[in-house]
Each structure stands twice: as structure tokens, then as C-alpha cells.
């Protein structure tokens, strides 16, 4: 199916009051962030999207694809599901090997290139992790960051879906900058639930959540985009410090100044 557009029709917040934002339309290539304090309903919103809510979730929202109610096939056959959802979970419960899990998921999603798909997913995932994921290892032994990296790679390569929803990918200690670079190579609708100003300010729009409701929808201004680029520099400085400490180095003030000057104030 050719996905051109996805629409969120507003419902009700936790208090039962109507959401202030009553409609959000996203077209192919759009990048949306969902922001708001902890517990404000961000995950609930993207779950509504991922499950094609039809007034049958607590929020009573509705999701439209290309202006019509999605077919039940999307829910019954993962191969037809145009959405890949990377949930906040940082662990697997599956008592199976990584290769076995990916094989089954590739079959379920009828992905192209079944022969190379497992190694493609691992190549992608291992660019985001510190220590590489072992293909013959158990799913349950993956660390939080490895699990997250595998889920992102799985969604992009096996899911191969035109719409990708990501719930707080910054939280698992993966290489976020690399993840964003890799993701930007794909023409899709991306929806990021995030507390990260880099992701937010590089998005086209953001929805602000409060009390379980969509409170505001903001278009990122050119000024905000410029600020976003500065924030990315600040982040490089932090990452470089983090990498030094992670690899066991000691910090010296003169190194710190060098890092700050080359990144922070750029």
C-alpha cells in the first residue's frame, strides 16, 4: 500500500476534557517530535498510532491513513502493517537466539532479501552499540542499549515500514547521533517521542503533551533549527567527554578546554 499521509484525530485527555489539538496531519518525509513531562501521555499517543486507534483506547483518538480508516489487515497481518513501533522497552523476554528471532520476524514481515536480512540488521545495530551484538547469543542476554539498537535496526530493515515511531531512543545509551544519521537516509514519516532538544529542534513539528492530551502543535521555526545545530555541537562535546571517561581515561583541564572550544562554542 502506498502511504501518503497519516492523520491523528484528537480525543480526550486523562481528565476527560477534549484535547486542544484536534487534528494532526503528517505526510511522507515529515519528522514529528512528541514532547512533554514524564507521565504526560507521550507513549500512549504513539501506541494509539501504532495500534490504529479507532475510539477504542482510553484517549478515544482516531488514526486515519490516506484520509480513511485503516483496514483491519494492518492488525491481523504484520506484513501489511505500515508502522514499525520502537517501544520504550529495553529488554526481551524471548527465550531464543538473536538469529532465530530475526529470521522469524523477517518471515512474518515478509521482508525482502531473507538471506542477508539478519546480517544487515546486525550491521546496522552494531553501529549504535558499544559492544557488538552476537548473532548466536540469546535475546534475553542483550543489554538495554543492545536491545534498543536491535529494535531500531529491526524496525528499519525488517519492518521496512513507511512510518516509524520511536519512543525515547535517547534513553538507552546508544550512539544517538549515528542513529539519527542512519535514520535520515530513509524517506519515511518519523515520529520521535523525546526529551532531547537535538531531536526536537531538528524535527519539522512537535506536539506538546500534558495530562494525557495533545496541548499544542508547534512548527519548528528557522531560528529554532539554527539553535538545534548549536545544540548538536554541544552534544558532540558531551559525547567526546563521555567516550574519554568510558574508555578509562583521566580528564585534564586542558583537554576539557580543547573539547569545549572545538565543539561547544562552534
Amino acid at each position: 500500500m502506498d502511504i501518503r499521509k497519516i492523520t491523528i484525530l484528537g480525543g480526550y485527555g486523562r481528565s476527560g476534557a477534549r484535547e486542544l489539538v484536534d487534528q494532526v496531519d503528517l505526510k511522507m518525509g515529515d519528522l514529528l517530535s512528541v514532547v512533554g513531562p514524564t507521565g504526560s501521555g507521550k507513549t500512549a499517543l504513539i501506541n494509539d498510532i501504532g495500534l490504529f486507534a479507532n475510539e477504542d483506547t482510553p484517549s478515544k483518538r482516531r488514526i486515519l491513513i490516506n484520509d480513511t480508516s485503516p483496514s483491519e489487515d494492518f492488525l491481523d497481518d504484520p506484513a501489511k502493517n505500515p508502522i514499525a513501533l520502537i517501544t520504550q522497552h529495553t529488554g526481551f523476554l524471548s527465550d531464543m537466539r538473536v538469529s532465530n528471532f530475526l529470521d522469524i520476524h523477517a518471515r512474518v514481515r515478509k521482508s525482502a532479501n531473507p538471506d542477508s536480512v539478519v546480517s544487515d540488521v546486525l550491521d546496522f545495530a552494531n553501529q549504535l552499540t558499544g559492544e557488538p551484538i552476537i548473532v548466536d547469543g540469546a535475546m534475553t542476554e542483550l543489554s538495554g542499549g543492545q536491545s534498543r539498537a536491535l529494535l531500531i535496526a529491526d524496525a528499519v530493515i525488517i519492518g521496512n515500514s513507511p512510518i516509524i515511531l520511536l519512543d525515547e531512543i535517547e534513553n538507552a545509551g546508544i550512539n544517538l547521533t549515528r542513529a539519527l544519521e542512519l535514520l535520515h537516509n530513509y524517506e519515511k514519516i518519523f515520529i520521535f517521542v523525546t526529551h532531547d532538544p537535538r531531536i526536537t529542534l531538528s524535527s519539522d513539528y512537535r506536539i506538546v503533551m500534558k495530562g494525557g492530551a495533545m496541548q499544542d502543535a508547534i512548527t519548528t521555526s528557522p531560528e529554532e533549527k539554527r539553535i538545534g545545530e548549536k545544540v548538536t555541537h554541544m552534544d558532540r562535546a558531551i559525547i567526546s567527554l563521555r567516550n574519554q571517561i568510558s574508555s578509562g581515561e583521566r580528564m585534564l583541564e586542558k583537554d576539557f578546554r580543547a573539547v569545549m572550544e572545538s565543539n561547544w562554542l562552534a
Binding site: P78, I86, H89, F101, I104, H105
Partner: peptide
């Protein structure tokens, strides 16, 4: 309580 990928593999 599980990721979408895991849900789909469980379903299979």
C-alpha cells in the same frame, strides 16, 4: 509489556 517486534514473533 513487550516490543512490537516481540509481539509479532509471539503471534507467529
Amino acid at each position: 509489556l513487550v516490543s512490537q517486534a516481540e509481539r509479532e514473533v509471539f503471534r507467529a
